[in-house]
């Protein structure tokens, strides 16, 4: 039953804003590559079958379960993980609001929720509670009961809003 192993895949992609090049076994998932090859362990494994969302990353602007993406599929793509979310020395407004709202208890699901929530707010900066719950339904949290997570996303919306509000005010003035 021993077969000659397939040659490793040579993969080039953009990862958290930087060009990255790696070799991966053909059967490896993006999750395995992130954690085992690239030492980016902020992306978590909860089930390895696409049902918990702990391994959520952004691929070409879409959120995916990285356990369901084969590493060779990543060639030429743009990947964002939790390690690329905060500006240097700072926090993304969602990261700040998760801290302020106590939206994490054990913290294992937190990176996946943050990546998912960021993708939502980039599309719908004023998503309401129901929309947030609908969007985040692919991420399981067993500690919080989701209450404080939803509140944190709403709080981040408010924190991110003033620029837009100020912009609207300026437009009014100029008109």
């Amino acid at each position: 039953m021993t077969q000659a192993p397939l040659p490793k895949a040579h993969v080039r992609c953009q990862l958290n804003g930087q060009p990255v090049e790696f070799l991966a076994d053909q059967h490896m998932s993006l999750l395995e590559v992130l954690r085992e090859v690239l030492d980016l362990t902020g992306t978590k494994e909860g089930c390895n079958d696409g049902n918990c969302g702990a391994c959520t990353v952004s691929m070409d602007g879409r959120i995916v379960d990285s356990c369901l993406v084969l590493a060779p599929e990543v060639d030429g793509r743009t990947i964002e993980t939790i390690e690329g979310m905060a500006p240097p020395g700072g926090l993304h407004p969602l990261q700040r609001s998760f801290l302020e709202e106590a939206a994490l208890q054990c913290g294992i699901c937190t990176p996946g929720f943050l990546i998912s929530a960021k993708a939502l707010l980039e599309r719908e900066p004023d998503a309401d509670e129901h929309r947030i719950r609908h969007w985040l339904a692919g991420n399981l949290c067993r500690c919080t009961g989701y209450d404080k997570i939803v509140r944190a996303v709403l709080r981040a919306e408010t924190a991110m809003a003033p620029k837009a509000a100020a912009g609207r005010t300026r437009r009014k003035k100029s008109a």
């Binding site: 362990t41 801290l99 994490l104 913290g107 937190t110």
Partner: peptide
């Protein structure tokens, strides 16, 4: 909290 929202906490 900071390590946990930044993906730095070591589980």
């Amino acid at each position: 909290g900071w390590d946990k929202v930044l993906g730095r906490a070591v589980f």
